[in-house]
């Protein structure tokens, strides 16, 4: 996505971008036993934080987004950031923003849109969430007739730009907006003025379902619970991943 000219331009123009790694990505290798092996990344996940200059989180986009929606959401967050210093109280403004977004997602399944250039209005308006947030689809207009982007189920990844039309990416984007952003807003509402370090673990554990404190990323139950040959499991796998609730039988080697 970051190789796309338009996405890169949008980010370079509007943001001070930086990327960080929270941990190594897990990989899985399947050895077919005939000399053929395949290696894939597994359970990798991402989050895009928009921060103020002092590192306070404005909002988070959880997971991977398709190109156009990513740019649209980043643009919304750019404007939220823009309005913070124009509001009466930054912390109250952000709390109101997260509350109203969480409510909108809960009721309509979609986040509210952020009105750009509200402070440039002829009428001198006070910047608050009421004056900047608009219903979903507001920017497209009621009769916009915008065609949804054509998606491809099995894109040819050797061709540049094909990834942008991958149906799975669109489906992931929809899941992110419908199911993950609500909990993100709730989390940020509960942690006013949070910095990334304050919420990263919670975000990965509760929203992205990849517990970065767990050596098996929360996959332990799936990996070990019903696997009969426990001697194959790595040392401490049952304790680390299953906890008391699903612990594997002790001394199972003797069975």
């Amino acid at each position: 996505m970051f190789s796309d000219e338009n996405v890169a331009k949008e980010i370079n123009d509007k943001f001070e971008p930086v990327w960080v790694s929270v941990r190594e990505v897990p990989t899985v290798t399947i050895d077919f036993g005939n000399g053929h092996k395949i290696k894939r990344t597994l359970h990798g996940n991402v989050a895009s934080y928009v921060l103020t200059a002092d590192g306070t989180i404005v909002d988070i986009l959880p997971g991977l987004y398709e190109r156009d929606e990513y740019v649209k959401q980043l643009n919304n967050l750019f404007w939220v950031h823009h309005y913070i210093p124009l509001s009466r109280n930054a912390q109250v403004f952000l709390a109101d923003y997260h509350r109203e977004q969480a409510q909108s997602i809960k009721t309509s399944g979609k986040a509210l849109e952020v009105r750009p250039f509200a402070d440039m209005s002829k009428m001198a308006i006070e910047i608050s969430t009421k004056t900047i947030l608009r219903p979903p689809g507001w920017s497209a207009g009621p009769k916009s007739g915008v065609k949804p982007t054509a998606t491809v189920e099995h894109p040819d990844f050797s061709k540049p730009g094909e990834l942008a039309h991958w149906r799975k990416l669109f489906e992931d984007t929809a899941v992110n907006e419908r199911e993950r952003r609500g909990p993100v807003h709730a989390m940020l509402l509960a942690h006013p003025g949070a910095k990334p370090a304050d919420v990263t673990k919670q975000l990965y554990r509760e929203v992205l379902h990849a517990d970065i404190d767990d050596p098996y990323l929360g996959l332990g139950e799936t990996l070990f619970k019903d696997y009969p040959f426990t001697e194959d499991n790595p040392e401490g796998a049952s304790k680390a991943s299953l906890g008391a609730k699903h612990s594997a039988p002790k001394h199972s080697q003797a069975i």
């Binding site: 509007k14 971008p17 990327w19 990505v25 996940n45 895009s48 921060l51 404005v58 967050l77 750019f78």
Partner: peptide, 22 residues
């Protein structure tokens, strides 16, 4: 560095967090 640049430019910081390396 991004935060310092943000203070200068007034732009927000975009922190892309991931497993693995971009």
């Amino acid at each position: 560095t991004a935060m310092d640049a943000s203070k200068q430019s007034g732009k927000p910081v975009l922190l892309f967090q991931m497993m693995g390396h971009l």
